[in-house]
């Protein structure tokens, strides 16, 4: 399938919009009318055709504009992409994973030719045509992780496994929901998740870590996370919070349908072959409240989830200031009917 890439912005004038097709394939994250943290991990296997699960790495209509936004973030703050010295090999593993996946899933857009360690990579949407020696960093214009993640939607962290833990020792993080790669670099799994409320007490991270330490090559897994964004800003970083935080106070009953977005993270994890590191990808999808209520089941369900969300979660996710406005808007689309199980539209 040939994708038509949109030209749009995720800052300033916010011209980001989903096409009707993008709304239909939006990964609505709630499989029931209530939400609480759990170890909601499932195998990352190919799903319905046209869905975000069709391919291991999903590329969509926002690809080119998202990559342009990432380049802007990095230009202003290079600390968003960091690698501890021992993670170079994992970076090359990631180059292989992403290039192979992208070129197999989207041959119209990406081409990979391999002759031993002589690799040829063509990225047509971004106008890139590079030859390099696999494993030799000096043959690329950036380090391996930075090179390929400047060309792939989603944030990426590389986790080193040692001493019975996973350590976030490298990452490209520019579309984050209020966490800092620069601050968290080098932390273990528990330290990294320290600010998350309720989940530690429920033992979520202990079970998740145990599970992820056993992750096998060729058997990736995935889970959803979610929050809300008061604009379609991808870079909701703590670094720039003093510049974008005021937008949270601008949601009104008049503009909530357009401005407020459900922000879904499709998180996937792969074991890497050479480094034994784990890739943690965090792909962000945005849908406005108008997008959501265009699917009756989603409108009903989001209303119920937001209305009943635990106050500590609402506070942590930064929803407090506009939650009631959102609930009031969504209530008009909740006729009280039962919703079917699962995430898919009826």
């Amino acid at each position: 399938m040939v994708l038509a890439f949109k030209r749009e912005t995720f800052r300033d004038d916010y011209t980001f919009r989903n096409s009707p097709e993008a709304v239909r394939r939006f990964p609505f994250p709630f499989d029931a009318d209530t939400y609480m943290y759990s170890v909601n991990i499932e195998p990352h296997v190919a799903g319905r055709k046209g869905s975000v699960f069709e391919h291991p790495i999903d590329i969509d209509e926002h690809y080119v504009s998202e990559m342009r936004d990432r380049a802007l973030v990095l230009k202003n703050d290079p600390l968003r992409c960091q690698t501890l010295p021992h993670m170079d090999l994992a970076g090359w593993d990631l180059v292989e994973l992403l290039m192979v996946s992208m070129s197999e899933a989207y041959p119209e857009h990406f081409l990979l030719e391999r002759n031993g360690n002589d690799w040829h990579w063509v990225n047509r949407p971004l106008g890139i045509d590079d030859r390099f020696t696999f494993g030799v960093t000096s043959t690329l214009p950036y380090g391996p992780m930075e090179y390929i993640t400047r060309q792939c939607q989603g944030d990426f962290c590389l986790l080193d496994q040692r001493d019975g833990n996973l350590w976030v020792d490298a990452g490209m993080v520019t579309t984050q929901a209020d966490w800092s790669m620069d601050f968290d670099l080098g932390m273990n799994f528990f330290e990294w998740h320290a600010p998350v409320p309720l989940a530690h007490e429920k033992g979520v991270f202990e079970r998740a870590l145990k599970f992820l330490m056993q992750l096998r090559q060729g058997h990736p897994v995935r889970r959803f996370n979610w929050t809300m964004s008061s604009t379609p800003r991808l870079d909701t970083s703590p670094e720039n919070y003093h510049k974008w935080g005021y937008e949270r106070a601008l949601i009104t009953p008049e503009n909530v349908s357009e401005r407020l977005h459900l922000r879904v993270e499709l998180q996937a994890l792969w074991r890497l072959p050479r480094s034994n590191a784990v890739v943690f990808s965090i792909r962000c999808y945005l849908a406005s409240m108008n997008d959501i209520v265009s699917v009756p089941k989603w409108g009903r369900r989001l209303h119920r989830v937001l209305r009943d969300v635990h106050p500590a979660l609402a506070e942590y996710k930064g929803l407090t200031r506009y939650r009631q406005t959102a609930v009031d808007f969504l209530s008009k689309y909740d006729d009280g009917q039962e919703t079917s199980p699962g995430i898919w539209p009826d």
Partner: peptide
Amino acid sequence: MGVSADAEE
């Protein structure tokens, strides 16, 4: 970590 305390208002 220190994060802006008055970013929203």
